[in-house]
Amino acid sequence: MISSQRKRHRFIWVMIGVLLPLLVVLAVLRTPSFPYSEKAEIVAETSLPILKEIESDLFKINLRGTSDGAEELELLLKVPLKSPSAVVFDDQQNVLGQIGASGVYRFPIRPANKAITIKDPIKNQIITEIKL
C-alpha cells in the first residue's frame, strides 16, 4: 500500500469509528415500539362458577353453570386456529357460534349437551370433537 492510501485509510476508519456508532446508537434509541390499546369490543364478564375444566394444547374449556347444570361454555383459544372458518356445534348439530382469533368465547349451552364439534364448512373439514 502506498503512503497516500494509508493516509486515506486512516481518515476513513477514524470517520467510521466515530460516525457509525453514533448513528447506530441513535437508530437503536429511537426504535419505535408497538403501542398497546384496549379492545373496542368488550366480552362480557361472567360470574357463573366453573363446573368442569378441559384442557388441550389448543384451548381450555370451562363449563360454567349452577347446581342445575351447565349453562355456559367458556372456550379460551390459546393460539389462532389455522382454518378459514370454524363453527362450534353442540351434539344436536345446533350452531353455538364461531371462533377464530385467540381469546375468550362464551356460548350458552344446554345442560344435557354431551359434546361439541368444531367444523370448517369452507373446507368441509372437522377440526376437532370434544366430549364434555
Binding site: I12, I16, L20, L23, A27, V28, T31
Partner: peptide
C-alpha cells in the same frame, strides 16, 4: 483502487441498512 475503496462506503451503508431497517422491529 478508488472504486475498490468504495467497499468502506458499502460497509457503512449496509450497517445503516440493518439498523434503520430490520433492527427497527427485530429488536
Amino acid at each position: 483502487k478508488a472504486l475498490h475503496m468504495a467497499v468502506y462506503l458499502a460497509y457503512t451503508l449496509v450497517i445503516l441498512h440493518i439498523f434503520l431497517g430490520a433492527f427497527q422491529q427485530e429488536t
